[in-house]
């Protein structure tokens, strides 16, 4: 008994140090052996640790959506492996089912998945599938709704009566209610107005702070990703083109443009300033950074 416990603790410790999710030579080919065969992702090797905030960027069709669907076992790799806490996600049917609650995936335009007669039941769909008790489900629904700013007053409404932004919040709450250790969001701000965008991104940050969950944000909007992600992974035609901090990635502006991606407007301005001979750092990607850099220069040249 004692031995068993210590063994458990040891493996527990090991797991803590282990990366939460890792892919090994992950490759996916759609419609194999038909005239429509296409390689979506090719030989992806990546490790994402617990608590990281990763931004996944890439052009349409670069394979980012295909990639994230492997992380919770929705797609099975053509070759290669996806490991969660060191265990192959596709090792058994039961584990693959289990993993969906640990790796929460919010699809693009998630509002199209709503189906229940009221908001409360829709958010509770995930926890109910986890076979949780009514009390626990209720707690999770309220907590998730709180994170994304869905007021309890609309719990009894039909999800189809809500506005677009509210529908999306409900759909995101439906995934958060499973309390996933890793939360993946595929273009969560697509088609929202700037205010709605900022609110949703804020909610995601709040969820992360409160739970320490890993966040993987798929987006093609550089501005969004640059502001909140700590690590950026750039996809290009099914492979990883860059992987590093936002400062690293945005300092390679030329390369990004060649892939067909935009750089944040602030970075663009900083680059132009440098061309003009103003010595601002190369990798500004936030308004605040450039602001500080310019003030510092000004202070250095003519202290007032």
């Amino acid at each position: 008994m004692l031995l068993k416990t210590s063994g458990f603790e040891l493996s527990g410790e090991k797991e803590l140090k282990m990366s939460t999710i890792r892919t090994e030579a992950l490759t996916h080919i759609y419609s194999t052996s038909t005239p429509f065969e296409s390689v979506a992702i090719n030989n992806i090797n990546i490790e994402i640790d617990q608590g990281e905030f990763v931004g996944l960027i890439g052009h349409t069709g670069s394979g980012k959506s295909t990639f994230v669907q492997h992380l919770n076992g929705l797609l099975a790799p053509t070759s290669g492996k996806v490991c969660f806490d060191g265990r192959d996600v596709n090792s058994s049917k039961a584990f693959r089912h289990d993993i969906r609650f640990k790796v929460g995936l919010v699809f693009q335009y998630p509002e199209y998945q709503l189906f229940e007669e009221n908001v409360y039941k829709d958010i509770a769909f995930g926890p109910r599938n986890m076979k949780l008790s009514t009390v626990e489900t209720d707690e999770r629904v309220r907590e998730a709704a709180g994170f994304v700013g869905v007021p309890e007053s609309i719990f009894d409404k039909s999800p189809f009566e809500l506005s677009g932004g509210q529908k999306r919040r409900v759909a995101i709450a439906g995934v958060i209610a499973m309390r996933p250790k890793i939360l993946i969001l595929d273009e969560p701000t697509a088609g929202l107005d700037p205010e709605g965008c900022a609110a949703i991104l804020n909610n995601i940050c709040r969820y992360r702070e409160a739970t320490g969950a890993t966040i993987i944000l798929v987006s093609h909007s550089m501005e969004d990703v640059a502001r909140i992600a700590e690590r950026l992974v750039v996809f290009d035609r099914g492979t990883i083109a860059m992987d590093g901090t936002p400062a690293d990635v945005f300092s390679r502006a030329e390369e990004l443009r060649r892939i067909g991606l935009d750089i944040p407007a602030v970075t663009d301005i900083a680059l132009h300033l440098r061309e003009l001979g103003v010595d601002v750092p190369e990798c500004c990607y936030c308004v605040e950074q450039l602001h500080d850099a310019i003030l510092k220069l000004k202070g250095g040249a003519a202290p007032c």
Binding site: N72, L74, H97, R100, F107, P110, Y112, F125, G126
Partner: peptide
């Protein structure tokens, strides 16, 4: 395609 998408979204929420 749409059915596939919705199916995946519900699977991601543990639907079987």
């Amino acid at each position: 395609e749409e059915a596939d998408k919705i199916m995946n979204a519900q699977k991601a929420r543990g639907a079987d």
